[in-house]
Design a protein around this nucleic acid. Structure first.
Length: 860
RNA sequence: GCCUGGGUGGCGGAACUGGUAGACGCAAGGGACUUAAAAUCCCUCGGUCCUCGAGACUGUGAGGGUUCGAUUCCCUCCCCAGGCACCA
């Protein structure tokens, strides 16, 4: 009797088996080579989505493959469980964040287990537990001690109605996302991590991470934004004070005709003070400060400024330069002041046009000479210096160093380096995050909590209303403490840490999740496992998370806790899961289940199929993993995600594609079923006798497939082509004429092929393959079995096809024995009847022979 | 604007260092099995032309170039996606 492929039954069965036997538990074993595979851990939002399914499937295939290859594989999972959604759920539905979070974790854990992922569940961690964040607090104390954590005034988005701080993404067109009130800027003391003290190393290692995608490294380099230039000193015209600027274009110094200062810069009001312009300047500054950040960075933002009734001197020409406050100068880059060279900088040009300021050409365009009075835009290309004193005639790029040296020699400048990267602001005026271990004392200022008092536990019985700032402020037992230094009453810091802090070291904690002694990381274990050999996650974390994790790693290394310079040796950024959108003119976007036969189920109108976009709830183009698992099983979900496109590209969801993947698994199932009785007692072919015809071809194809699948997984993570190769092998098997029941040789070859198919598919679809493996009478679990090897001698083709081209066009193909000598092949090509016919009466100019591939005959 | 990717059949995608373009799958069409349908198994499937052959031409965003030969290398341009965006 044939048994039908029943994914629901077999998947549950094997999942239970892996769980009961702790198949994927690992311990450190110095006798075995380790392999640490990590996928970015999820935020417990409630349900897993297809993005998770794809990410974790890719990782699982690699983890299972490496295990079969004999590595000691660490494949952990946990929860990035602090963050705003828990707090919002509490505000909206009155559920305590801890309860909401832990319920979500339970639900998602169930879903992950249903996918059959090979996690070591004994290492599960949840970052909102004190056992985790207490070490983060310890690291904070160490950072504070070394000046790597510090407090500084900074501006934040503030909603006056909700009385709370908003993240940038919570400000929609200048309005609060929750109540629609206009958001204002507010200054707060905030905590920062001094990531900038590692900026050079972070940049340097961008060239030492060959296992990272080039584009991620480029993004990080751009984010760090290193510029070489000069700090120049401009004396004030009427006092002994100076204004310092940073510039990368000291070659244009002779053309600097005015000075610009960021509107927010304190110097602006200082210079205007007591002058008739003071009120105008104040108005201007207030107006600029109020402008929303989004507006300020839009394309239409017009350059504006106000004259401060003050002058400075050009340091090389001593010409008087008027000083303006301007809305487009960045206060926190360089010195907040810039020298303006309107002839060679487009922004300065526009400003000079508007306020009718002087222009002096200092770089001449060799092809089309410039005239300061008639030019319509700044000339920003290279050229030859003019109006530049002793530097006239030099190429501007070559004069950069000479001019810098000259400025230094007259005491008006020096070479410097600037970075775009700012220190990392980690203060969040929120409840659901790790408390910062600081006490604010009126006498002593910010005082670190003694190490012995850690952890500072986040109180859990809290009522959240969403108004009035941090809820922690309202909890007397938390806030009111005595100062650890002077013993007087003091207030505990109520800011919590950015959740990116937790994700900056969780991969270290996975190496020793239960280690409960200082510093929370077991040096030996961490040394064994770190760095992560393969990290897999979404491209959306290309900058922030990955940069923070790199910084934190270097810092913990300097604290003596870690031995590695970089946390992730290899990085794979997988593409998004996308699906077409569907829209009804009456009911807007529709979920797939709200559409039948192309019509809206509410009104029967034809549904418009829209663009394919990233799956999202707002576009309703989502597919619930649970539905796919119920309908087809997780093996189908897994193989579809891998087959539809290579991992780094976007995956387009297709219901028919899922159907096709399911059909393929059925096809594998049936062919094993079909042969099972005949091959039960037969051993796989051992190469003992010579094979002929179909059997020989099948065996060759089998070994070729093992080879291809191995390199596709090992070298490139191209699971789609690996699966194609197995499909081809299965197709070949279907083509084989059914051997007699007593033809043991034929059956043994077929058995070898079937076992190979199962082994090769096992990391991809672990449940069905375990089941088939068992049906073949195997005692050992497939997950504990070694990856198959191939015999190169068997895989080699004995006949090869040689393409014959005439003048580069394919005209014929000839079959030759693989060992045929080159001369013979050329001769055969020339004597081919088709070739003879086409070269008749023409002169053969030359022949090109590409060994074992083609012959190209050039004729005239 | 700058920096990265990327444009290949009706569709998702193959083609690894310049050497048979379109593997594999989906959709479509046809056949077998069946009383019938589903399922399954098998076959066809870039385009145009024709003397339907185991034929000719054409074809990897567009135009040039290098080469015996280009989806692959070089130049110019167009389009799409992502990142950064007044960083002086």
């Amino acid at each position: 009797m044939k048994i039908k492929y029943n994914p629901r039954e077999i998947e549950a069965r094997w999942q239970k088996c892996w769980e009961d036997e702790k198949t994927f538990r690992v311990v450190e074993d110095t006798g075995k080579e380790k392999y640490y595979l990590l996928e970015m851990f999820p935020y417990p939002s409630g349900k897993i989505h297809m993005g998770h399914v794809r990410n974790y499937t890719i990782g699982d295939v690699v983890a299972r493959y490496k295990k079969m290859k004999g590595y000691n594989v660490l494949h952990p999972i946990g929860w990035d469980s602090f963050g705003m959604p828990a707090e919002n759920a509490a505000i909206e539905h009155g559920i305590p964040p801890a309860k909401w979070t832990n319920e979500n974790i339970e639900a998602m854990k169930k879903q992950l287990k249903r996918m059959g992922f090979s996690y070591d569940w004994d290492r599960e961690i949840s970052t909102c537990e004190p056992e985790y964040y207490r070490w983060e607090q310890l690291f904070f104390l160490w950072m504070y001690e070394k000046g790597l954590a510090y407090k500084k005034g900074g501006s934040v988005n503030w909603c006056p109605t909700c009385k709370t701080v908003l993240a940038n993404e919570q400000v929609e067109a200048g309005l609060c996302w929750r109540c629609g009130t206009e958001v204002t800027e507010k200054y707060f003391d905030q905590w920062f991590f001094r990531i900038t003290s590692y900026v050079e190393e972070l940049l340097d290692y961008c060239d030492k991470l060959p296992g990272w995608p080039e584009r991620v490294l480029t993004m990080q380099k751009n984010w760090i934004g290193k510029s070489h230039g000069c700090e120049l000193v401009f004396p004030m015209a009427d006092s002994d004070d100076v204004i310092k600027v940073f510039t990368t274009r000291q070659d244009t110094i002779f053309g600097a005709t005015f000075m610009l200062i960021a509107a927010e810069h304190p110097l602006v009001m200082e210079l205007a003070k007591g002058k008739p312009v003071e009120q105008d300047v104040r108005d201007f500054v207030e107006r600029v400060k109020k402008q929303d950040k989004l507006v300020r960075t839009s394309d239409y933002y017009e350059k504006e400024g106000v004259f401060l009734d003050a002058w400075c001197l050009n340091p090389v020409t001593d010409k008087r330069m008027p000083i303006y406050a301007a809305n487009f100068v960045l206060a926190d880059y360089g010195t907040g002041c810039v020298m303006a060279v309107p002839t060679h900088d487009q922004r300065d040009f526009e400003f000079a046009e508007k306020y009718n300021l002087e222009k002096i050409v200092v770089i001449q365009n060799p092809d089309d000479p410039l005239d300061a009075d008639t030019m319509t835009e700044a000339y920003v290309d290279e050229g030859v210096l003019v109006n530049s004193g002793k530097f006239d005639g030099m190429k501007n790029m070559q004069a950069l160093d000479d001019i810098a040296a000259y400025l230094e020699s007259i005491g008006r400048g020096r070479k410097t380096i600037e970075y775009r990267l700012r220190d990392w602001g980690i203060s969040r005026q929120r409840y659901w995050g790790a408390p910062i271990p600081i006490v604010n004392c009126e006498e002593c200022g910010a005082v670190p909590v003694p190490e012995a008092d850690l952890p500072i536990i986040l109180p859990r019985d809290v009522e959240l209303t969403g108004e009035g700032g941090s809820p922690l402020d309202l909890i007397d037992s938390f806030v009111n403490v005595t100062c650890p230094r002077c013993g007087r009453p003091a207030k505990r810091e109520t800011d919590t840490m950015d959740t990116f802090v937790e994700s900056s070291w969780y991969f270290d904690r996975f190496c020793c999740p239960d280690h409960s002694v200082k510093p929370g990381l077991d040096k030996e274990k961490v040394k064994y496992w770190m760095p992560v050999d393969q990290y897999i996650g979404g491209i959306e974390h290309a900058i922030l998370h990955l940069l923070y994790a790199r910084f934190y790693t270097k810092m913990l290394r300097d604290f003596g806790v870690l031995d590695v310079d970089e946390p992730f040796s290899n990085l794979l950024t997988q593409g998004m899961v996308c699906k077409e959108t569907m829209r009804c003119s009456k009911h807007g976007y529709l979920f797939p289940e709200e559409v039948t036969d192309g019509k809206c189920i509410y009104c029967g109108l034809a549904v418009k199929i829209g663009k394919t976009e990233k799956m999202s709830k707002s576009l309703k183009n989502v597919v619930d993993p649970n539905y796919i698992i119920d309908e087809y099983g997780s093996d189908t979900a897994r193989i579809f995600c891998l087959f539809a496109s290579p991992p780094e590209k976007d995956l387009e969801w297709s219901d028919q594609g899922v159907e096709g993947s399911f059909r393929f698994l059925g096809r594998v199932w049936r062919i094993v079923e079909d042969y099972i009785d005949d091959i039960k007692e037969v051993a796989p072919f051992d190469g003992g006798e010579a094979l002929e015809g179909d059997l020989k071809n099948l065996r060759r194809k089998t070994h070729q497939t093992i080879k291809k699948v191995t390199t596709d997984i090992e070298d490139r993570f191209h699971f789609n082509t690996a699966i194609s190769a197995v499909m081809e092998l299965v197709n070949t098997l279907y083509q084989i004429e059914r051997p007699e029941k007593n033809d043991r040789t034929a059956l043994s070859v077929i058995r070898e092929t079937l076992e190979s198919v199962i082994l090769l598919l096992s990391p991809i679809v672990p449940h069905i393959t375990e089941e088939l493996w068992e049906m073949l009478g195997k005692q050992n679990q497939l997950s504990e079995t070694a990856w198959p090897g191939f015999d190169a001698a068997v895989a080699v083709e004995e006949e090869i096809t040689i393409v014959v081209q005439i003048n580069g066009k394919v005209r014929s193909r000839i079959q030759v024995a693989a060992g045929e000598p080159d001369d013979k092949i050329k001769e055969l090509a020339l004597n081919d009847s088709k070739v003879k016919q086409l070269t008749e009466g023409k002169k053969i100019i030359k022949e090109i022979y590409v060994p074992k591939k083609l012959v190209n005959i050039v004729v005239k």
